[in-house]
Design a protein around this nucleic acid. Structure first.
Lengths: 198, 198
DNA sequence: CGTCCGCTTGACTCAGATCAAACTTGGTGG
DNA sequence: CCACCAAGTTTGATCTGAGTCAAGCGGACG
C-alpha cells in the first residue's frame, strides 16, 4: 500500500531505451524526470573537481534512480546505461503536483523512503560480516519468510553474490558449506533454513 | 533546512541513559518513541524464527534509530546498548501529530529520508571497491569539499575505517600509500586531494 | 606522572579473489 | 524435436592483499 503512489505513476510511464554507454541525464541538468530501470544496468556517477568521479549507485531490476532529485533543482550525478537498458520515465512535476495537492502523499513517500533506509542499513551491516558463509547466512535469514524460514529465489545466485559483495564462486562455495554443516537445506534455488546445526 | 523538523523535536527531548547491555526497546512492542544516539553505541537486532537473530544496524554519534517505526504499529527489531550510552527520546505521537497537522511536514520528512537513501547507496557502492587504497580514495573524494577538494576530519581515522569497512591498520596503510603515490596530501587529520598523481 | 587511546609500522597468515575448465540449464531458431 | 548458444552453476588450483597479532610512539587527560 505504501509504494502504490510510485507504482501508479510508473505503470503509466512511457518506456524508453538506451544503448550501452548512452546517457540518461547529466549532473547539473534541471530535474525533469524520475526513472525506474526495467532491464539492464544504469551507473550513477558523481563528478568532482579535478575531473575525477565516484560511482554513487548501480541500478538494475526495477530500482528507481535519483529519487532524492525530487527535492532538488538539478541532478547531482550523471546517469548512463552500462548495458543496453529499458527505463520507465515519469515527469518529476507530476509527483511534485501530487505532493502539493494531497497532504497524505508526502507521508506515504516518507514511509517508502524510511523503509528503504532500513533495508539499506541492514545490507550495509551485512557487509561487516567477514566470513563468506556467515554473511550469506545472514542474508538468507534476513530474506527468509515462513515457518520454517524458506526462500524461493526468483533470480540467480550470481545476483545475490553481487548484492552481498562476494564473488559468485565464493557464494557457491558458501552455499555448499552451509549445506554441509547443516544450516540450510537446498535444492537449486530453494533454500530452507534449519534450526542450528545438522 | 530539511532536517530542521527532526532536530527541533530532538532538541527539546528528554535525555536518557542506558548501561552497556541494557535494553532500549524490544521487537513487537508498540512504537512509542523515536531515539537518537547521543553517545555510545546501540545495536539493532532483528529476531527470526528458530531463536536466531540478525544485526540490522549499529547506531552511534547522533544517528537516529528505527525511523521506519514511525509508520508501523510495532518495533521490528530489538535495540540494546552495546556500550554505555546516552539517548534523546521523543514521543512518536508528536511526530505523527505534526505530520497530520502540517501537510508540508510529510514532504520534508520524505526529503530527509531520500537524502539518507542516496547517502547509504553511495556507502554501499564504496564497499564494492576491493582495494583498500581505492576504497579510501573514493570515500575521500565523496566527502571532500572545496577547490581544491579538502577534508578536515572532525573524528578519528578509526571511525572512518569502520565506516568504510576496513581495519584501522589497513586504513592507515592506505593513507600512507595514497600519500606516497601523490593522490593526497595529508597532515594529521587534514587531507587535500591532488589532481592525478604526484 | 601514569594511563588510555589513537596512530604507525612490521611480519605472518589465510580467506576470498582470480583464473580455469567442465557441466547444466534455458531459451532461440531452424 | 534437436542443434546451438549464452548464462548460470560447480569444482579445482593458485595467488594476493587485507586481517591479525605485536610492538612502540606520542598526545590528552585525569
Amino acid at each position: 500500500m505504501i509504494r502504490i503512489m510510485f507504482d501508479e505513476f510508473f505503470a503509466t510511464a512511457k518506456p524508453m531505451r538506451r544503448a550501452a554507454g548512452q546517457n540518461v541525464f547529466r549532473q547539473g541538468m534541471p530535474v525533469t524526470r524520475l526513472y525506474r530501470v526495467t532491464s539492464g544496468r544504469v551507473r550513477l556517477l558523481r563528478h568532482l573537481a579535478e575531473g575525477t568521479a565516484v560511482t554513487v549507485a548501480l541500478a538494475e531490476d526495477g530500482e528507481t534512480i535519483a529519487e532524492a532529485s525530487l527535492f532538488t533543482e538539478r541532478y547531482h550525478c550523471d546517469a548512463f546505461a552500462e548495458t543496453a537498458c529499458e527505463l520507465a520515465a515519469i515527469p518529476a512535476a507530476a509527483i511534485r503536483n501530487r505532493l502539493a495537492a494531497d497532504a497524505r502523499a508526502g507521508v506515504q513517500l516518507a514511509a517508502l523512503f524510511a523503509g528503504q533506509v532500513r533495508d539499506l542499513r541492514a545490507r550495509l551491516e551485512m557487509r561487516n560480516i567477514r566470513g563468506a558463509s556467515e554473511r550469506l547466512l545472514a542474508w538468507l535469514r534476513y530474506n527468509a519468510r515462513g515457518k520454517p524460514p524458506q526462500i524461493a529465489l526468483q533470480r540467480s545466485w550470481r545476483s545475490v553474490a553481487s548484492e552481498i559483495g562476494l564473488t559468485p564462486e565464493a557464494t557457491y562455495r558458501a552455499l555448499t558449506e552451509l549445506q554441509r554443516t547443516g544450516f540450510i537445506d537446498r535444492r537449486a534455488r530453494s533454500v530452507t533454513l534449519r534450526s542450528g546445526k545438522g
